[in-house]
Amino acid sequence: MTPDMIAQRAAQVAEARKNLTDFVDHDDIPDLETAYAVQDALAALEGPVGGYKISWNRAELQANFGVSAPGAARILKQRIVPDAAVLPAQDYSLLMLEPEIAAVLSADIPMQPQDADSVAQYVGYLVPAFELLDRRGASSIKGLNIISQGVFNAGVVLGTPSGTEIGATHVQIGDTVHCDAPDASPEPPLQALAYLANLFAARGVQLRQGDVIMCGSHTGLLPIAIGDTARMAVAGLGEVSLSLTA
Rank of each mutant, 00 (worst) to 15 (best):
M96I: 08
N64R: 15
A69N: 10
A16N: 02
V67L: 14
A102H: 03
E98D: 04
A35G: 10
L76Q: 06
G66C: 04
T34M: 15
Q78W: 04
K53V: 00
A89G: 11
D27Q: 15
R17C: 03
A63V: 08
P88D: 13
G66M: 05
L95F: 12
L76V: 02
A72F: 03
K53P: 00
T34W: 05
L42T: 01
Y92G: 08
I101E: 00
V13A: 09
D22G: 05
Q12N: 06
I101D: 00
D22L: 12
G47R: 08
A89Y: 11
N64V: 08
Q62G: 05
E46D: 04
I29F: 09
V13M: 07
L97R: 13
Y92M: 08
D28A: 11
K53F: 01
A72V: 03
H26Q: 08
I29V: 15
A37C: 11
E33C: 08
V104Y: 09
G66V: 02
D25I: 04
E33W: 14
L94E: 09
L94D: 05
V13N: 04
Y52G: 01
E98W: 11
L105S: 13
L95S: 10
R79K: 12
A85M: 08
L105M: 13
D108F: 14
P99G: 13
A89Q: 12
N64Y: 08
G50E: 06
L87Q: 07
H26S: 06
S55T: 06
G47H: 07
L76F: 03
V49L: 02
L95N: 07
V67S: 09
G51C: 07
Q62I: 07
L32A: 15
A73P: 00
D91N: 15
D31Q: 12
G71V: 09
D91F: 07
M96C: 11
F23H: 01
P30Q: 12
R58N: 05
G71E: 05
T21D: 01
A107P: 05
L45C: 07
G51W: 05
A73Y: 00
K53T: 00
I75C: 02
R74L: 00
T34P: 03
